[in-house]
Design a protein around this nucleic acid. Sequence first.
DNA 1: GGTTGTCAATACGCATGCGTATGGAAGGAG
DNA 2: CTCCTTCCATACGCATGCGTATTGACAACC
Lengths: 196, 196
Amino acid sequence: MAAKRKRLTRYDWIRAALSALGERGLAGIAVEPLAKQLGVTKGSFYWHFKDVDALIDAALERWAVEETRESIARLEGIGDPRERLRTLMKPSPASALIGSIDLALATSASDPRVAKWLRQHHRLWIEFAGRAYRQMGYRDPQASYRATLAYTAWLGFVSLVSADPSWLQGERSRRSYIALARDLLVPSTEGQSGKH
Amino acid sequence: MAAKRKRLTRYDWIRAALSALGERGLAGIAVEPLAKQLGVTKGSFYWHFKDVDALIDAALERWAVEETRESIARLEGIGDPRERLRTLMKPSPASALIGSIDLALATSASDPRVAKWLRQHHRLWIEFAGRAYRQMGYRDPQASYRATLAYTAWLGFVSLVSADPSWLQGERSRRSYIALARDLLVPSTEGQSGKH
DNA sequence: GGTTGTCAATACGCATGCGTATGGAAGGAG
DNA sequence: CTCCTTCCATACGCATGCGTATTGACAACC
């Protein structure tokens, strides 16, 4: 299928593993199917990695640490906390891809190879949102709760759309939905601990 | 493990399949592990079912049609639409179990054996919430959007808690979070298409 | 109490994935 | 050009899961 370079690197396997994870779940990370997809045999894999668990751990580390931290760092560059959250809530093809991995890992949350990286990923995003809400004037319990609500709403929306792509198919209605969700989750001007 | 009755029924296999689905995902529905768990051999399974796909379809049908419809019908008995949604958003052990199946199926959303039942399940719940919002006075686009938002927030919350059970561990904080989410998602008294 | 029907055990062939062992090709260093 | 490291192919044994075929146990019914 993809016989571009003859010799692979460790990172090629990680990329293939993450792709398979998003498409077929954790069980999709299997040596022989990935080898066939990469146009090589198992001999290549067992030179780069000790075993399958090593590949899974490396792939999840790359995903949780690098990809997540980079995305968060990019968003932290936005000064206005409201605009920061608004940007986060705008689904893009990239965020949809990340979401499919979120889902795959959520199913395997009980797997010890997955648990630690998944917990860290969720916490990083929720703490990111919590900082934004705190900068908007919310006190600490409410800020964390609102961050959790916004994050879970986004997580569930990705789940819903991946299950039923025809949901809010039109670009118009999807934008309208996101606009409503944003207005409810990140209020426009009010925001002190007072009530209005 | 469970050598209670000697002879099994078709429904025993379906129950075991749903349990395995919630715990280990779609791939957890496998004949020989289930047989071992039920204390029998494959010979039993292939008398009750044609193949694995037949078991998967029967289990998902039971889940999507009976369990979902029954839960919805129970809730529809509550007259006040606000109280109806409030009851839905109160997570119970039962809803947590259903949520784990939600998650397992969300990962396998692309699987054709899963897609149709999962879509129906989501639509049933969102339409249920949409009816409630419409009874509260919201017009049709906003009612559907709010229903989608509430459902996805719930779906994502189940996902988050299953990934990290220590999240909002205390009963106090979890109640406070749910109270906030309810106040934001199903407003207390306002609700006409007007803005306040 | 023998017959029929229901449910399950046993034994088999097949496919796929893991992990190992060993030999070989390709490219840079000298 | 030679050697040595890097990367991969081939071949094997093992485990697990699917599906089939055949036989057997137990119950109900006549």
